[in-house]
Write a protein that binds this DNA or RNA. Structure first.
Lengths: 232, 232
DNA sequence: TCGTTGTGTTATCAACGATAACTTATCGGT
DNA sequence: ACCGATAAGTTATCGTTGATAACACAACGA
């Protein structure tokens, strides 16, 4: 005899058949009141917030299941498909949000800094701070593969979202002022970005390798990178 | 009525109930002859080879399911558990193998190179070549999260496997010869490693961002990094 | 008043990781 | 030549997952 819910019709209105029910009974069902007409987008945002909180708490995107998100939000799991075509799209939407947060953090970081080299340094520090303060979000944005694809972006999108042009401009200014040796600014910007990304992604992906204080490593790497661009 | 296989006993010896059978009928069952006594480890290697080939072909570790591996090897999926406690351990064993391959590639790369700075450059190039020639393996080793954890390694293990000491030695030699400015060699080695890792991991994780020829980027980054360590 | 549409829900599926229980081949000892 | 032990597997089955089809209901406009 199958222990399954009896299938076809043996289910009247109020029966306590909760098919997707929280199996582990952790945390209450978190009831949600249905959105009014025209406010369906509300659920979308709640889903993204729940997804992010689950990645942060569990430390892995694998645990962000449609059921876990639905339970936290207080809706049924198929409701997620009203707003996202599949689980990957949901997570990629979360990544998009994170990219815009990172962009804001970077443009805030250089407010009022005139010296191009200082601007370079501060942008790099702010980038690293974001990554290390939001390691799971950063990992999802930059490293994870979801349903066979990573959250891919074109060069143009990167330049727009990542405040990449801030770095390019700082390098261009540095070359103009004579502090930096002439090079292709976009290339140099990529190299500096890759350097910071490399450091933080190692810290995030290999937490057991004890390299010391991340901030020191970041500063060392940034100074080394900038020195490598200097006029001599 | 459940459409499930009827459960308890309605199954005689030769019935064509193939529970784990290849659902999509892609590729034949790939029969395998049982190992002789004492040669059980053979299957372990076949499993690892199959796992690697699936990552490479599908481009994602998610597709390396126990069933897919078993089908390719020609055994049943529970047989995998004779050699690995779980799926993550299987994939981590694959990572371990890759780390040793990378280590070999690096020590081969510097054969007969005397100049420390050239050694630094060639090690970096060899590292990048390995990563870009085996992007899926590199991704699995360095970026992916499997069952909630990444393939984590201690600093000591890294130094041993990654040929990290090659880099440290090259920097120490460079400082001694006066080519490089005095710094902490381990710190500088980390920074250079992180730089190369940053470049290749961006290329692997964001393939749609067209940055141009990877080799050029790598060379630019390496030269910039090394210049940043030079005496001035 | 009623039907259309937005906002959901319940029931169900095939594929997945994992385990329990069973089978079969090889070996050393007699 | 036989046998019992054990290495090397297999079959059946479970609970969970992503996804879909079919249904439910409330709010708005004609």
């Amino acid at each position: 005899m199958s222990s399954r819910p009896a299938a076809t019709k043996a289910r009247a209105k109020g029966a306590n058949n909760t098919p997707d029910a929280p199996s582990t009974s952790t945390s209450p069902p978190a009831a949600r009141t249905r959105s009014k007409r025209g406010e369906g987008r509300q659920l979308r945002e709640e889903i993204l917030a729940a997804a992010e909180s689950i990645v942060v708490e569990t430390g892995t995107v694998e645990k962000v299941t449609t059921r876990a998100v639905a339970q936290r939000v207080g809706c049924s799991s198929p409701s997620i498909y009203l707003h996202f075509p599949d689980r990957a799209s949901m997570l990629f939407a979360m990544c998009e949000l994170q990219f815009s947060h990172l962009g804001e953090a970077l443009s805030n970081a250089i407010n009022g800094i005139d010296d191009p080299v200082d601007r370079l340094l501060e942008t790099g520090r702010a980038y690293a701070r974001f990554a290390l303060d939001h390691p799971q979000q950063y990992r999802t944005m930059m490293m994870d593969v979801i349903a066979g694809v990573s959250y891919d972006r074109t060069l143009e999108e990167m330049r727009a979202d990542l405040g990449f042009d801030i770095v390019v401009q700082a390098i261009t200014d540095g070359i103009a002022s004579g502090a930096l040796a002439p090079t292709e600014p976009l290339l140099a910007a990529f190299a500096i970005w890759a350097h910071v990304h490399g450091v933080v992604s190692i810290f995030i992906a290999k937490p057991h390798a004890d390299w010391g204080d991340p901030a020191d490593l970041i500063d060392f790497a940034l100074r080394q990178g900038i020195d490598g661009l200097r006029s001599r």
